[in-house]
Amino acid sequence: MTSEKKKELDALCLKFRRSLIEILHDIQTGHPGGSLSVCEILTTLYFDEANITPENAEERSRDKIILCKGHAAPMLYLELAEKGFFPMEEMKTLRQIDSRLQGHPCSKETPGVEASTGPLGAGYPLALGVALSDMHDKIDAYTYAILGDGEINEGVVWETCMNASKFKADRLITILDWNGVQLDGTTEEIMPVGDVELKFKAFGYNTIVCDGHDCAALSAAIKAAKSVKGIPSIILAKTVKGKGVSFMEGKNTWHGAPVQDEHYETAMKELGGAQ
């Protein structure tokens, strides 16, 4: 990735973080922690690696991004609005009555949302099904599935891994938002998964570890994943839950807590960088 591109993506991420805090403060509901940790992952995909625009959204040849960890919907919506799938103005309606922007992504209502996700784990086999269909029909596209690291507690994630290996799903690129924190505490406290990389390797995956807050590193990891044929790849993206807002970082309590006035002031000051 060129340094200009990286600068552009970093600026977008800062803008998304500021918008996120503003919106969640306005509506007093929604999930800040996981939205902040997945910001660079989504931004690298939507604004660099993935071939997806409102214009090609109906074409099978587009790349598909499936946010399995659906509670990061606010960040997904910011990306989609910036891409032009719907007006940024609509973000104000998030989680409100009669809105297209549901608390968790809804594929029927919201332009650009590929799958209704939220029940953790469920989106992953769907992503595999999309990738397998494209592979069967020789469609030159990738499906990106973004998993949370709490989400991998779900048995269906591992059922899907077995199927992805069996069916040689090299068009499925999984990205783990590896922030180490789930709703009730750290992943270590709540459900210690052990050696995550070794586990995915044991399920037949090509694994790549990278800094999940470095768009250039993510972009390189995606390119590396694409070069591996015959087996599925997972990018283990090391992230920080609540990234960018010091008092939210690494705190499970910020998984879904409302952003109060005093939090808002401090957070916006910290995110005060160039617009």
Partner: peptide, 25 residues
């Protein structure tokens, strides 16, 4: 080539079917 034996993974099988339906299958 149009038959997927998913092993004993009913939940994943249903999810995979959803992805296939989304792809026009």
């Amino acid at each position: 080539d149009r038959f997927y034996n998913c092993g004993i993974s009913e939940y994943a099988m249903m999810g995979m079917a959803a992805g296939m339906a989304k792809s026009g299958k």
